[in-house]
Design a protein around this nucleic acid. Structure first.
Lengths: 247, 247
DNA sequence: TGTTCCATGTCGGGT
DNA sequence: ACCCGACGTGGAACA
């Protein structure tokens, strides 16, 4: 069953024989299509870890960039997958259809063995558009750089991504009294990890400047958890409630 | 085009009219099927952040648990998505077909507007099997509990998930000299964040025990980055190279 | 390639 | 619900 609308193409087989399914998939992979298969299968993975999934009905997608996704009827995340950069292969084994996606560095292998293929499809067509996303940490940074008083009156940003021995500081600046200020940004409510991160930067910068004057550390986020709040106090760090711009 | 094999069903339409596509999708959602659509569409998301994606060819999957996935021909991750728990809806608007997935807490809305639907499908069939995964942090923990000498000669595990004011410690125990030992496990090579985490636990435990004797902190992972190694030294923490069991 | 950190992270377990 | 940390995290930017 083929549909040809100019350069866009879709091919599908329902309840195909293994041979027919294998053929459609092979041709789909060959011409750089997105290939999907649905049916009863087992899934084996071996690489950074190892897994096995007993027989059940799943949806498999092979992308032309080498990514592979195995989805069940539940969950946002695939139950098994392979990152882009893999080589896809389709072979027949006895009465079964086997899809295999392999990569190196690290050596990883994903193997889906269909004992019953209910549908296979191949979709062609590229996507030249990028996602326009708003509300990220970068947007929050822009907001502060444009209006430093949002952090506190008299704050002056001096650098972004300033390097320290502990890593790059989101915003580095000075307060009204010319004290060094390290600002760590988070787009959402923060826990203990963000406080530790800020602490690393403050420690490193104090050492780096080997100044007597202490470096101030300010965490900027929509809100903090209790534990994180305690850690902030404990380490003499500060918090400013601020969200990424809404639009 | 319907295929009925007992209780397993797949339905597919190629190059359907908006009305036919809408009908198939509505019935699919109704009976708890996985619904997919492929075609030229725009995608809008608004919630924790906001995004817009101009027209292009994408593959959309709606799951019966409320998850939604929009995939392009590249990348392991969907370009847009919605977590499980959403309500899916399909409506016709002018000549277009619109899929909408909405949830609350937080309020989020995903809207896919197809100006051209090349294929729609509905797949039924559940998956009662769980994934059997080996090589996780839990496996690494078991390995050490069964053979504590892997950490160091004379180590005695006393508790797992021991609570401290900073959170739960992976393994808590004593060394040959009866000194308290905090063990933090990572299944893969670690960076600065893991060192900070271990440090939080050691600090908290020292305070908790208000003992004079210092608490030892040991990071167990396959390897460490340079920066993390420096941080370990700086804070008097230790490292033991150990991997999760391979099988 | 290796390191570091963000993410609409997602997911599971605990309180 | 919120908190917390693991994840085969994935992905990008930078050295």
């Amino acid at each position: 069953m083929t549909d040809s609308e100019g350069s866009q193409r879709t091919e599908t087989l329902q309840g195909p024989t293994p041979a027919a399914a294998c053929d459609l998939i092979a041709r789909g992979l060959d011409r750089g299509a997105i290939v999907t298969a649905y049916g009863r299968c087992t899934v084996d993975y071996d690489g950074r870890a190892s897994s096995r999934l007993e027989a059940g009905h799943r949806h498999v997608m092979l992308k032309p960039d080498g990514a592979a996704l195995v989805h069940t009827d539940e969950g946002q995340q695939p139950v098994n997958w392979q990152p882009p950069g893999c080589d896809h292969e389709v072979v027949r084994e006895d009465d079964a259809l086997v899809l295999e996606s392999v990569r190196s560095t690290p050596n990883e292998r994903l193997r889906v063995r269909f004992e019953d293929v209910l549908q296979v499809s191949a979709f062609s067509g590229s996507d030249e558009n990028d996602l326009a996303l708003v509300g990220t940490e970068e947007d929050l940074r822009q907001r502060i750089l444009e209006e430093p008083d949002l952090l506190e009156a008299g704050f002056t940003p001096l650098a972004t991504e300033r390097e320290t021995p502990a890593g790059a500081v989101d915003i580095y600046g000075e307060d009204a009294a010319d004290r060094a200020v390290v600002v760590e940004l988070k787009r959402r409510r923060v826990g203990p990890d963000a406080v530790s991160q800020l602490r690393r930067y403050v420690d490193a910068l104090e050492r780096d400047l080997h100044a007597d004057a202490a470096v101030r550390g300010v965490l900027v986020a929509p809100s903090v958890t209790d534990r994180a709040s305690g850690l902030l106090t404990e380490h003499g760090l500060e918090f400013v409630a601020l969200e990424p711009p809404a639009e």
